[in-house]
Every structure is written in C-alpha cells, then in structure tokens.
C-alpha cells in the first residue's frame, strides 16, 4: 500500500508538470534531434541572426488581438542598432521569459500535496531559494553541447554565439552548458524530472524558514517516491538516485554565480533594469 501511495504521488506530480510546463524534455529532445513533424528551430549564431530571430519571435508570439496594432513594430528590428543594444534587448527578453517561468514553477509548487498548507512565509522562502535551481534544471533538457533551445523551442541559439557576447553576458550561460551536458547523461525523463523538481522546492535548509519539520516530512515522502520511480524507470542505472541527489550541490553554486553575474550587470550596464519579480527573488539571496 505504501508504494502504491508513492506511485500515485509520482503520477500526480508528473501530471501537474505536464500541465504547467509547456516544453517537455520529450518534445525538446525531439526538436533537437530533428525527430518532429514541426519545422526546425530558427538558428541564432551571430548578431545578424539574433536580430532576425527577434523578429521571428515577435511575429509568432503576438496574440491575434494585438497583432494588427503591433504589426508595424513587428520585430523591433532597428537596422542601426549596435551590438550592445541588441545584447541588452535580448537580456530583457530573457528576463520576461524567466519571470513567466517563475509563475509556471509557482503553479507547479502549489500542486505539490501539502505545499499550500505550509506557512505562507515559508512557501515564499522555498520559492525564493528554489526557483532558480528549478529553472536551471529545466534548462538542461533544452541544451546539448552545441547550444540551447529558447522561445519555447522555436529557436536554437548556439553556444559559440553566447560565448562571443561581451562580458559578463558571455560568462552567464557557459556554466549552465557544462552542468547540463553532465546532467543529461543521467537520462532522466519528464516523469523523473517532476519528482526531482519537487524535491528541490521542498528543501528544509533554506535560510529563514520558520517551520522546518513539515517541509522535511513532505520532502521525505517525495524522496521515497523519486527513489522508487528511478528504480522502476531505470532498473539498469546503478546508484542513479544518489547521482541525482548529488546534483543539488552543483545547483547551489550555479545559482550563487548566476546571482553574482546579475548583480554585476546591474552595476555595469546603465540601460538594464531588472524585472521586479526577479529583483524580489535575487535580493538578499546569497
């Protein structure tokens, strides 16, 4: 009976993962390997294709109600733009997508059984500290050694192009590529990922938590469910559960470096304003 409960929990979390996260690992891997009936992603590999890619996203993502109104501005392609302006605008776009992703992760967290019964301040703390870790894990399936899918899988941006940007933009994604290439070798699927994300969110050692015990109890149940899931789903992968948990240590370092880069950007780039939601998360984080 106990393992039936753990399986039910895994199924529930997988269903809410599919509900709240539009681009699954299965879909991303199909796009990356060309095994999808959809058209291939648009490739951004230099400043010119970045400008063209911007136009591509703007034209495809505008809701029909706004399309006419914004058509003249479609693409925001300003021919005289300097590389600096294009980089800053791209960064702002990443921020908007990240803020939207925080909303998706929040909805997923709310669907974890017991999460909404936790103290509201603790729910905030768990999200504040967990959300960037979750976003980095969710980025992994979108990446391979050569680049990453962005804009819901519509665009592939090359790793070399990201490395060619000026500092610190060029330094921001490289650590995520290094992590993702190793993480992808564990070959977790979407149903494994759903449980792992819940484990990350339910970390009882986040600074400032008021009531740790119920969080640890919830995490323990999800951990049991993840352990069982990995044994059943990957019977030949020895010690996979331990290997997955070890990734949580790397994640904390990645987040602290990421926050450092953003603080650096805030100081050095006068044109950059941080999204208010991301500001809330990053302020006094580490």
């Amino acid at each position: 009976p106990e393992s039936a409960d753990l399986r039910a929990l895994a199924k529930h979390l997988y269903e809410s993962y599919l509900k709240y996260f539009p681009l699954t690992k299965a879909k991303a891997r199909a796009i990356l390997s060309g095994k999808t009936s959809d058209s291939s992603p648009f490739v951004i590999h230099d400043m010119r294709s970045l400008s063209e890619g911007e136009q591509f996203i703007n034209c495809r993502q505008i809701p029909p109600s706004l399309a006419n109104q914004q058509q003249s501005d479609c693409g925001l392609l300003h021919p005289g733009d300097s590389a600096e302006e294009v980089e800053v605008r791209f960064f702002q776009r990443c921020q908007s997508r990240s803020a939207e992703a925080v909303r998706e992760v929040t909805e997923f967290a709310k669907s974890i059984p017991g999460f909404m019964e936790l103290d509201l301040n603790d729910q905030v703390t768990l999200l504040k500290y967990g959300v960037i870790e979750v976003l980095i894990i969710m980025m992994a399936p979108l990446m391979n050694k050569d680049g990453t899918l962005i804009a819901y899988g519509q665009i592939f941006m090359t790793r070399e192009f990201l490395k060619s940007l000026r500092k610190p933009f060029c330094q921001m994604m490289e650590p995520k590529f290094e992590f993702s290439v190793k993480f992808n070798m564990l070959e977790m699927d979407d149903s494994d990922m759903a449980l792992f994300l819940a484990v990350i969110i339910l970390s009882g050692d986040r600074p400032g938590l008021l009531n740790v015990k119920p969080i640890e109890d919830l995490q323990e149940t999800v951990l049991h469910s993840l352990e069982l899931q990995l044994k059943m789903n990957h019977p030949d992968s020895l010690q996979l559960f331990a290997k997955v948990l070890q990734k949580m240590t790397d994640l904390r370092q990645l987040v602290s470096d990421h926050v450092h880069f953003i603080q650096l950007l805030k100081k050095t780039e006068v044109d950059i304003c941080l999204h208010p939601l991301l500001q809330e998360i990053i302020r006094d984080l580490y």
Binding site: S96, A99, E100, V102, R103, T106, E107, K110, L120, N121, Q123, V124, L127, K128, H275, P276, L277, E280, I281, R283
Partner: peptide
Amino acid sequence: KEKHKILHRLLQNSTTPVDL
C-alpha cells in the same frame, strides 16, 4: 511580506500577470 509581494500574490492567485 512587502519585500516579496509579487511572490505572495503569485502564491495566492494564479492569474497574477508577471509581465508588469
């Protein structure tokens, strides 16, 4: 609470827009 008002709102209401 003031420091994290958007997170609070997101937790209490799923329709809160984030693109402010």
